[in-house]
Computed example of a mutant assay.
Amino acid sequence: MEALAQVLSCPVCLEFFTPPVLVLSCSHNFCRKCLEKILIRQNCSHVNGQFSCPMCRKIIHLRGRGIIGLPRNILVENILEKFKYELGNLQTKEQDQLSQICEEHGESMNLVCLTDDKPICAICKLFGDHEPHTVAKLSEVYAERKERFVKDLDWVCKQSECAEQARKEIEETINELTYTIADVKVMIEAVGASLLKGIQWRIAELKAKLCNDYSTKVEELQLAAKELQFPKHLYHQMKTLLEQHSNSVHFLREDKILRTKMEKLLHDSSLHQCIKDYHISIEEYFKDLINGIHISNYISSNADEILASSNDPPDPFRPECPAFSFSGGIPNICFCQKVLDFFQKSNKVTQDPTQNVSHNDANDAASRLDLSLEAESIPRQATV
């Protein structure tokens, strides 16, 4: 192998040939990059130039095509590729054999110390640190552990499927939250636009609370979704070990590590985390918005005259922003239910989660709701 490796090495860089391999008329082979360096050192920059072979000093003529005109040695490249493949297999076998040899005594490890749960050789049991420990044959422990490993793999597979289903439900919940937050913003803007300046602070407070509530729930759900990928990763690791372990020693070493992860998964309760509480209630925000508000204190008969005389009215009080029509002092239960039904219906409509809620959207929603409430008579001084 060493002699063949020398034949397949470039005489310039003394490493394996780096394709493409170029052959000169004197039959000597070089890496193309090494040959380019040789041309630079010999000041051969013209396509019709000439240079001397660094091995035999024979003059090589480029004949008008430069280094591109030199032929490639496809045979050497194919042999080199096959040699590297075989060399890799040989090194893998050598490492496989070394992994089954006791580093301390140089003997083959054919026993398993049940006390320390590790492969050992016979000398380790007779004269080494494992003399007082309980041992068993490596082949027997390997067969038993492998059978148990297959059963554990099936269990982890089922856990992975359950976790994947739970993760999908979390993603659906996140999407629902994304759609709901847009609806809640529309509701807050539509209802808030009908109130006076005294409740602007409440609108801002509710928006901040809503965003914080949304961010907190999404962060917790995304963290739970990330944790639910652990069984899937563990399943692939166990399956890979079962199918691709090189020897029993390698299997037992990796089995110990994976069993630790599986025990963690067994006691992990986050896979069954309840997500039914991760929702945002439009009704709750609506009631917080209008709680304790007496409309008669904010809307008077001369409200239009006051707004018209204002030089720079705030956005919620601009004339083009429609307000709800109230016949009584405060919205009653019938009105609240009407508004809630209106926005609940909008939840069923698929919306773009990246859509920005503008004042125009709020105004349109308020206008539609206002028209739907015009024919309804609301008793005065009703309470929510």
Rank of each mutant, 00 (worst) to 15 (best):
D268G: 05
D268I: 02
D268H: 04
S269I: 13
L271D: 03
L271N: 04
L271K: 06
C274P: 07
I275R: 01
D277E: 12
Y278S: 04
H279V: 14
S281G: 05
E283C: 04
E284G: 06
Y285A: 00
F286H: 06
K287W: 09
K287R: 15
D288A: 09
I290P: 01
I290A: 01
N291D: 15
G292K: 04
G292C: 03
I295H: 04
I295N: 02
N297E: 14
S300N: 09
S300G: 12
N302P: 02
N302M: 07
N302L: 10
A303E: 15
D304H: 08
D304V: 08
E305H: 07
E305R: 06
I306C: 06
L307G: 08
L307R: 15
S310E: 12
N311W: 07
D312E: 12
D312I: 12
P313Q: 03
F317H: 10
P319F: 07
E320W: 13
C321Y: 10
F324G: 06
P331M: 10
P331G: 12
N332H: 03
N332L: 00
C334R: 15
C336N: 05
C336P: 02
Q337P: 00
Q337E: 13
K338T: 12
V339K: 01
L340R: 00
F342C: 04
F343G: 02
Q344F: 09
Q344K: 11
K345R: 13
K345T: 08
N347A: 09
V349A: 04
Q351R: 14
D352H: 00
D352G: 03
D352I: 02
P353L: 01
Q355N: 07
N356W: 09
